[in-house]
Nucleic acid binder design. Structure first.
Length: 434
RNA sequence: UCCCCGAUAACUCAGUUGGUAGAGUAGGCGACUGUUAAUCGCCCUGUCGCAAGUUCGAGUCUUGCUCGGGGAGCCA
């Protein structure tokens, strides 16, 4: 049988009354005197398999002691309708082949601490909630690609090894690169995307990003996946409109296709549905005024901290764009505000429920002299950016872009407290294995 | 880098004024006619993170170290 003709668990509702053979793993087992139950998983779904005394052959019934959690087995049996379970079917076992034994699987069905779970991440991924979480992550990734490709974006992968320092000379992972001295793991693909818009108009990249910051919070990882998009002839307003449409598209997709995984994770859907409304758009100065009333106080000119973000998210109960920050707290490539030269045309999107900033974006400065001045202020060597400055020398245009932290986005939608669970193998300050 | 908290059975934790450790879960055996974290009975499980100090005596008090958790800053 060809691979694509195999029967898997998700197909079983179509096979009621028929006998099928399925390979998979035992998720759990329970028994009473007359009936024994196996939770059986094959990657496409989870189903309950029954061994019934007097009905199931004795030699199969006698295999019980070997049918331990995470043993791999091939099960043959008749598919029957049943009330319980998401698929509404179960399988009455007539034969079992043991493929691989289970042993004492270290993860039980009870509570475990984060350190223990992360040390066993390679096994933890098999558990029900983790399976649900990565189904959601996968849908988010698919939705991002679908939306952007449907809007004429071209995927232009950016380099991971880079010699140019992106924005922050600190916080970079450094390594030796042949005879050329130090190389760095990319913190952003933005400058490369800016180069690409002149060829393709609208581009994006989506890949791992590395930050050597010694961050120990539930919102930070040393390695995370970032979607970055860059658009020619988009001003700050267009940029925000696009971001809002993209997030709405992803959210609709998750609410359409991920209801079962969201239920497994016990995600309250009300805040997600509320986020289908238009997002709040708040000028930085309005944010300062609002925070003066609702607290915590934000000093005019300072960057927002985590507590400010949480307060704004709680106040509105849906995502909030905070726009046009002070120039001093933002990167050199952001476009100077035409009316207020102390500010830049940027926006961060803050997710509700304490999930913090999930998008950072801006219109880019297209005036080469202003960029040179900003580089000098920041103490960055202009010759390092010579190729980037070429983009302003040859056909410079209005353009904008943004970056989305995938794990933060997934963490918000799935309602995860900590984003370290939202990536298969998290890389943090004190954790490099598995 | 800074602040706070923690480390006791395979896991999650309790452990009183300092007197050599206990529960639940997991595991083993048994019971139970359909279980959903099943339930019930019995049994098993210890370098109390490491090192030093105080003391007749330290899981408990002191110091140092290691590891972990939460938060800040930075950012996505």
């Amino acid at each position: 049988m060809r691979w694509n003709q195999r029967i898997t668990i998700k197909d079983l509702p179509l096979y009621i009354g028929q006998t099928v053979t399925l390979p998979g793993w035992i998720q759990f087992s329970r028994k009473s005197s007359q009936v024994r139950f196996l939770g059986f998983r094959d990657g496409s779904g989870l189903i309950q398999a029954l061994l019934i005394k007097g009905e199931t052959p004795e030699e199969v019934f006698g295999l019980w002691s070997e049918l331990r959690q995470e043993a791999s087995v091939s099960i043959t049996g008749e598919v029957a309708a049943c009330e319980q379970g998401p698929l509404g079917v179960e399988i009455k076992v007539s034969h079992i082949d043991i493929l691989g034994t289970g042993g004492d699987f270290p993860l039980g069905r009870k509570e475990h601490g984060p350190d223990f779970l992360h040390n066993l991440r390679h096994l933890w991924l098999r558990s029900k909630k983790q399976v649900a979480l990565f189904q959601i992550r996968d849908q988010v990734i698919q939705a991002i690609h679908e939306f952007l490709w449907s809007q004429s974006f071209v995927k232009m992968d950016s380099p991971i090894l880079t010699g140019t320092v992106g924005e922050d000379p600190k916080g970079l992972f450094k390594l030796d690169y042949f005879d050329l001295g130090p190389a760095y793991l990319a913190q952003t693909g933005q400058l490369y995307l800016e180069a690409s818009i002149f060829a393709h108009g609208r581009v994006f990249c989506f890949g791992p990003t590395f930050r050597a910051e010694k961050s120990k919070t539930r919102r930070h990882l040393a390695e995370f996946w970032m979607l970055e998009a860059e658009m020619a002839f988009f001003d700050a307003q267009d940029n925000i409109d696009l971001q809002e449409d993209l997030i709405h598209f992803i959210l609709n997709r998750v609410l359409e296709r991920c209801l079962a995984p969201l239920e497994v994770l016990e995600r309250d859907l009300a805040p997600l549905k509320r986020s289908l409304e238009p997002f709040v758009r708040l000028d930085y100065k309005e944010a300062v005024k609002l925070l003066a009333q609702i607290g915590p106080l934000l000093v005019d000119g300072d960057d927002l901290g985590a507590t400010h973000e949480t307060a704004l998210g709680e106040h509105f109960g849906k995502p909030v764009f905070v726009m046009d920050y002070p120039k001093a707290v933002k990167a050199f490539y952001m476009k100077e505000h035409p009316e207020e030269p102390t500010r830049v045309k940027c926006a961060d999107l803050i997710a509700p429920e304490g999930h913090g900033e999930i998008i950072g974006g801006s219109q880019r400065e297209e005036d080469i002299d202003k960029i040179l001045a900003r580089l000098a202020e920041a103490g960055l060597a202009p010759e390092t950016y010579d190729w980037y400055l070429d983009l302003r020398r040859y056909g410079s245009v209005v353009h904008s872009g943004f970056g989305i932290g995938l794990e933060r986005l997934v963490g918000w939608m799935a309602g995860m407290h900590h984003i370290r669970e939202c990536i298969p193998f998290p890389r943090m300050m004190e954790r490099l294995t598995p």
